[in-house]
């Protein structure tokens, strides 16, 4: 179903294809945990081209490939590559395509992954292009919710923090609305979800400015990092960052089944004490990146139908 497919944007995937990825990811969990061994992708080579730093995304892709018996080549420091000599991305991609079977690319410029997909014959997976798309993050976020609740439709999901620049929340908001979730947006006025994203959503989300408005009845709190550099005035940043922090005290008012998610890295937006409450799921969520990416690699390489 997904053999040879590029995954550049979440909208490249039909709901059926997403369900297929989730179902394969579920089977991959014991292998991702190291409890079972697999040689499913033995002989296949993944190229990871990270033109921009990343910890989780790159390592989880590499872990996914190794867990399935495949090999990994690539770089995470473009300064040491021919890119620094002025090579075009198109040329880098054409070359790397001939050294590997699947390419994962992260690039600071928007639309870079679409371009890479055009120049590579093998499948290209977007691991984030500038402020653009990051579809595998969206998939692992939805997978986490499915693992926790068994469904997404009808869940009250509150997206909190920087909804303007945070690249993961745009495609997540759109995908969740199509899957029937009740999406709520909570952000400072200056970091609101862009209108074009709201226009793409299946139905109009509810917009709030305070976490308190959704604290008692949300099923999922999806918290994102508010970046200091978005605020010219440090005092203004401190004020905003403070009012969008999840505290241990707040978790006591949440529903018993509610979970807190975060794409990580986290800075101050979730108090460290929250980690020890039954609400915290962000580390579990980060782990799910591995089985989801294993499923994607196995499917686009055609090792699994």
């Amino acid at each position: 179903m997904l053999k040879g497919k590029d995954i550049v944007s979440i909208s490249d995937l039909s709901e059926r294809e997403m369900q297929r990825i989730f179902s394969v990811a579920r089977d991959m969990i014991p292998i991702a945990e190291g409890k079972e061994k697999s040689e499913l992708l033995r002989g296949s080579i993944l190229a990871t081209l990270f033109f921009e730093p990343s910890t989780r995304t790159r390592l989880s892709f590499e872990s996914a490939m190794h867990r399935l018996g495949g090999s990994v080549i690539g770089f995470s420091n473009p300064a040491s590559t021919s890119l620094s000599k002025g090579e075009t991305l198109a040329d880098t991609i054409r070359t790397v395509n001939s050294y590997s079977d699947v390419i994962v690319v992260r690039h600071p410029l928007e639309g870079a992954a679409r371009l890479a997909a055009e120049f590579a014959e093998n499948p290209v997976i977007n691991a984030g292009d500038g402020a653009g798309q990051h579809p595998t993050q969206t998939l692992l976020d939805i997978f986490t919710m499915l693992q926790e609740f068994g469904h997404v439709d009808g869940l009250k999901i509150s997206l909190i923090g920087d909804l303007r620049y945070g690249r993961t929340v745009h495609s997540l908001a759109v995908a969740l609305s199509y899957l029937g979730a009740d999406v709520h947006l909570i952000s400072p006025r200056t970091l609101k979800m862009p209108k074009h994203v709201i226009r793409e959503m299946h139905h109009e989300p509810e917009i709030h400015e305070r976490i308190d408005d959704v604290l008692r009845d949300s099923d999922v709190f999806y918290v994102t990092r508010i970046q200091k550099e978005r605020f010219p005035d440090p005092a203004e940043y401190a004020k905003v960052a403070n009012s969008y922090t999840i505290t241990r005290k707040m978790t006591e008012e949440m529903k018993k089944e509610a979970i807190i998610m975060h794409p990580l890295p986290r800075v101050t937006e979730i108090e460290p004490e929250v980690d020890y409450t039954p609400r915290a799921r962000y580390f579990k969520q980060a782990f799910y990146g591995v089985p989801v990416r294993m499923a994607i690699l196995a499917l686009v390489l055609g090792a699994i139908e």
């Binding site: 198109a90 928007e110 371009l115 653009g132």
Partner: peptide, 26 residues
């Protein structure tokens, strides 16, 4: 950038005119 591609847009609306970049989505 200095890449061997032409810009490409999808027309979302003719009146008023709204174009969407096929690469970056702007």
């Amino acid at each position: 950038q200095r890449e061997p591609v032409e810009s490409e847009f999808t027309v979302l609306s003719e009146e008023p005119l709204i174009l969407k970049c096929r690469y970056c989505g702007r």
